[in-house]
Design a protein around this nucleic acid. Structure first.
Lengths: 339, 339
DNA sequence: GTGAAAGCGCTAACAT
DNA sequence: ATGTTAGCGCTTTCAC
């Protein structure tokens, strides 16, 4: 068994209260005593037990990270990168992060992640879109909350968001600057805030350049922005609209689907169609041609979210909700060309 | 504040001991009493506090997952997938997993991950190669340990390993079956057990087919199996040995580097060179041509490791070390061809 | 400046 | 079959 505070106290010839205070640099303890205690602590390789500390302070040193299982499982490691971002921050802080997935269709009867029920987290980061029912249940708990890459339409929350509007604008403007005017938008589930914001950016760019918005070129039929759905959207779109010369896909997964459709149908990218994605996933560079896209700094999103939740926890009195808008960047590669 | 065991006891009109026993289905409690207690628990939405429980049982419900920072950061999400595998298991068990990275050059003066020092994990999964010094320090703690995709050369441990020898054999045999005889092996850091095992498989396949092992075709100069090093190895190898028609790269990262070198030098794959990788990372399918490789079931490795550590924890008495060898599978795609 | 003691929310030995 | 009680390892008043 490893050393406890009692062992330290006995060996140092002081009370356990003194040890406790000395550890946390309380000014009530004299320097001499503190140094003596600290020396013994080192000798005994003493480290306070988290459980014991947690029991009295009602803190755990853990942060919960929640996302839906479909996000967890999807091919492009978008949320995984955000998660890794949170892990970066833990190196410098006394926190660990516990990952939990909830069902995409979380309902009335589903239980919240155990770490919430058992109070083993001091705060929660919610990543990506989560069901309303989940938020409903969660709201019964008074626990610091940060949303990343999604936030509920009602209520005031602290959030870390991607600047999707600028990204949509940048992508579309790039295509316009290359001479394209028949630019399609391939989206999915337009009720998803991120997608609708990207569409907003798309529209803004067209308007700014006095290009009429052609609703036939805006596809938002699919329910989820995944490769296969990108494939299907591209098929419908390109079979119907022979005039399109450029596509802005709402994310890289869909863009990859578009590329696959084009490859299958002898449509050359960027020869026949210029293509821009969104996210900048690892796969983009391996594609042929490499995909022009809007880079979302995923790791940074995690870092920001983690810093935010930590500051919320340490500053309980401050009930202000903060919002951070993380900027994006257009990465021009080989899937777009001038016409 | 949420309900405690006292609240439940009071409301149910029993002692806290009864509540505690009822929760854990202890047979000493009558069914009637248990049901009454369970009903109150539901009413109050009571969940035992993990910290309090942990303090007395000396368990935390957490598993530590340790890997080196370079593995954590690398492009191919190999260990990330193993980590995700552990997360799958947590859904069915009462565990969470805490991730910690250690420095690749962990030394005498470095501290172990905090979760070990503060006793906030019940067991540890060590993923990938870790420094000897780390294991040295770790050995001072009496905590269940499982190694995955690596194990120390000395000592008896429970491990989950990839069947690297079979994999190396399969990859090489595939090339031989296609008519190749000048087959290169591109490795790195031959002291890494996984790589040397893959090389062993390579040699076994050649020997079995009575092909002389040509040590000029075995490259193990690089220190780390990454893309750039694959690129460099391919350059050295192919500039010197004009006769090679096939390459078995010790992992997909290196194979991708080989492909990049070939693309840069007008060497056609599989026209001029047939190429086989190892791991089956997500990127393989997007390559041009898609990479023939040996699939390592990464998620399954994590699942096995997690199941193993859990069974070790729940069966403290059993001090047998277990070894699991996870089988691999050859995935033939388009980067190899008959000659 | 330091110590004594209460108590956080549980489990488990021991009583009854 | 159920209750009483000690104590897990800490933090935090409150005394001195």
């Amino acid at each position: 068994m490893s050393a406890t505070i009692k062992d330290v106290a006995k060996k140092a010839g002081v009370s356990i209260a003194t040890v406790s205070l000395a550890i946390r640099n309380n000014s009530r303890i004299s320097t001499v005593t503190r140094n003596k205690v600290l020396k013994i602590i080192k000798e005994l390789n003493y480290h306070p037990s988290r459980s014991a500390k947690g029991l009295v302070t009602k803190t755990t040193g853990n942060i919960g990270f929640v996302l839906t299982d479909d996000h967890f499982l999807k091919t492009e490691p978008f949320y995984t990168m955000i998660f890794l971002g949170t892990e970066f921050v833990t190196k410098g802080n006394d926190y660990y992060v516990l990952l939990a997935t909830i069902k995409k269709d979380f309902g009335e009867d589903d239980e919240l992640p155990r770490f919430i029920l058992e109070r083993s987290v001091d705060g929660i980061i919610v990543a990506g879109k989560v069901p309303h029912e989940f938020l409903q249940k969660l709201s019964a708990y008074d626990i610091p909350l940060v949303f990343v890459d999604f936030f509920p339409s009602v209520g005031r929350y602290s959030v870390v968001m991607v600047d999707n509007i600028s990204g949509g604008f940048l992508a579309t403007k790039h295509l316009i600057d290359l001479g394209h005017t028949n630019i399609a938008f391939l989206g999915a589930d337009i009720t998803h805030p991120s997608i609708s914001e990207r569409l907003t950016g798309y529209k803004q760019a067209l308007e700014q350049s006095n290009i009429r918005i052609n609703y036939e070129l805006i596809s938002t039929d699919e329910d989820y922005p995944a490769r296969q759905n990108g494939y299907n959207s591209a098929k419908r779109l390109l079979e119907m609209n022979k005039q399109v010369t450029a596509i802005f896909a709402c994310n890289d997964a869909m863009a990859i689907g578009v590329m696959q459709y084009c490859a299958d149908n002898n449509i050359n990218i960027p020869g026949d169609i210029s293509l821009v994605g969104f996210d900048d996933v690892e796969a983009d560079l391996l594609l042929n041609p490499p995909l022009t896209t809007v880079r979302v700094p995923k790791v940074e999103l995690g870092i920001e979210a983690m810093n935010m939740i930590i500051s919320m926890i340490s500053d309980k009195s401050n009930h202000h909700t903060k919002k951070i808008l993380v900027p994006v960047e257009l990465i021009v590669r080989k899937s777009t060309r001038k016409i």
